[in-house]
C-alpha cells in the first residue's frame, strides 16, 4: 500500500471515529447518569461505568450504627451517617445509594455488628430506581407518556393523509402554480414554532382545542404536512407513470390503482415521512408548553423536570425515557429511509 492511500485511510477512519464518539459519548453519558445513585453523582472524578452494588461497612459505636461506604476515590470506607434510627437508614439507603431495603431487612443485617466486630456487606443497587422515581415524583408522568403517543399518532395521521395527497397532486397533475406551491410548502416550515404558537393558541382556544392532544397535533402537522407533501411528491414522481397506466388498462379504477399500485410502492417513503412527523411531535416541548401546559406531553414534563430539579440523574432518566421510543421507531424504519429520495427500484 502506498503512503498516500495509507494517510487517506487513516484520516478517513479518524474522521469516522470522531463522528461516532461525538454521537455515542453524550448518549452513553446520559444512559450511565440515569442509573447513578445520588452518591455517585457527587463522586469525583465521575466514573463512566455506574456501580451495580455498594460495599458497606457497619460499626456499632456508642449505640449507633456508623454507616460507611467504600469510596473508589479514597480507596477506603467513607463514613456517611451515624444513627440508630432504622427509618432514617432506610431513607438514606434509598435516596443516596438507590438501595431499596425494608426496616426489617436492615435491622436483621445490621444487628450482626452489635457484637463489636465491624460488619462488611454488599448491597445491590436498584438500577431502575431513577426511572421509578421519575414516574412517582413527576406527577402525571404516565399520562404524559400517553399524551405524547397520542399527539405523535395524530400528527402522523394528519400530516400523512393530507401531505401525501398534496404530494401526489404535485407529482402527477399539471396545474397553474405547481412550482410555486412546492416552494411555498417549504416557506411554511421557515416560521419558528414559537412565533406561530401564540396565534395558534388563539385559534385553538376558539375551537376549544387548547390543552388537547388533537389541537397540539394540528399545530405540529402544519409544518409536517408541507414536509410530507414535499417528500412524497418526489417519491410519487419517482414511481413510473406507466405502472399506474398499466393498472388502468388492465381493469382498475383510479381508486383501485392508487390503493393497489401507487400506495404500496410509496410505502417506504411514507414510512420515512411518518418518522419525521413522529419525531417532530415527540421531541417538541416549546409548542406544548404554550399550547398544552395543563395537559403536558412527556417532553414537556422532562423539560420542566430538568429546569426545576437539581437531581440530574432523574433528568437523565427522563431523557432516556424520551429517547427510547424515538430510537426504537427509527431503528425499525431505518431500512426505508434510504429509498426515500431515490426511485422505487424496479
Amino acid at each position: 500500500m502506498n503512503q498516500k492511500s495509507l494517510i487517506a485511510k487513516t484520516v478517513f477512519y479518524l474522521f469516522i471515529a470522531t463522528m461516532i464518539i461525538a454521537i455515542l459519548v453524550p448518549f452513553f453519558l446520559f444512559l450511565s447518569t440515569s442509573v447513578y445513585s445520588e452518591y455517585e453523582v457527587y463522586e469525583f472524578p465521575r466514573k463512566f461505568i455506574p456501580r451495580t452494588s455498594f460495599d458497606l461497612k457497619i460499626d456499632w459505636v456508642d449505640d449507633k450504627y456508623d454507616f460507611s461506604v467504600f469510596s473508589r476515590e479514597m480507596d477506603d470506607y467513607e463514613l456517611l451517617i451515624q444513627t440508630d434510627n432504622l427509618d432514617k437508614l432506610r431513607r438514606f439507603l434509598k435516596r443516596n445509594l438507590s438501595v431499596q431495603k425494608t426496616n426489617e431487612e436492615i435491622n436483621r443485617d445490621f444487628s450482626v455488628s452489635k457484637n463489636g466486630e465491624p460488619l462488611y456487606l454488599t448491597y445491590k443497587k436498584d438500577l431502575l430506581y431513577n426511572y421509578k422515581t421519575f414516574f412517582s415524583i413527576t406527577n402525571k408522568a404516565g399520562k404524559a407518556v400517553a399524551n405524547s403517543v397520542i399527539a405523535a399518532g395524530w400528527t402522523i395521521l394528519i400530516s400523512l393523509s393530507f401531505g401525501s395527497l398534496a404530494g401526489y397532486a404535485i407529482a402527477r397533475y399539471k396545474f397553474k402554480g405547481r412550482e410555486q406551491l412546492s416552494l411555498i410548502l417549504l416557506v411554511v416550515r421557515m416560521f419558528p414554532a414559537v412565533a406561530v404558537a401564540i396565534p395558534m393558541l388563539v385559534y385553538l382556544l376558539k375551537m376549544n382545542f387548547d390543552n388537547t392532544m388533537i389541537g397540539l397535533a394540528i399545530v405540529y402537522s402544519v409544518g409536517n404536512i408541507a414536509l410530507t407533501a414535499w417528500i412524497t411528491s418526489s417519491i410519487f414522481s419517482g414511481i413510473n407513470v406507466e405502472l399506474e397506466e398499466a393498472s388502468y388498462v388492465f381493469g382498475a379504477t383510479k381508486l383501485q390503482t392508487f390503493t393497489k399500485i401507487t400506495l404500496p410502492l410509496a410505502v417506504p417513503g411514507l414510512i420515512a415521512c411518518s418518522m419525521y412527523a413522529f419525531l417532530a411531535a415527540w421531541n417538541d416541548s416549546i409548542t406544548a408548553l404554550i399550547l398544552s401546559n395543563n395537559n403536558p406531553t412527556l417532553s414537556l414534563v422532562i423539560y420542566k423536570a430538568i429546569g426545576s430539579s437539581s437531581a440530574i440523574q432523574l433528568s437523565a432518566a427522563g431523557a432516556v425515557i424520551l429517547i427510547m421510543p424515538a430510537l426504537v421507531f427509527t431503528f425499525i424504519i431505518k431500512n426505508y429511509i434510504n429509498q426515500m429520495w431515490g426511485e422505487v427500484k424496479l
Binding site: E242, A246, S247
Partner: peptide, 14 residues
C-alpha cells in the same frame, strides 16, 4: 377491452 405492453414493461415491482 384492450391490453397493452409498455415500453418500460410496467411490471409492478411489489
Amino acid at each position: 377491452g384492450v391490453s397493452m405492453i409498455f415500453q418500460s414493461y410496467a411490471i409492478w415491482p411489489h
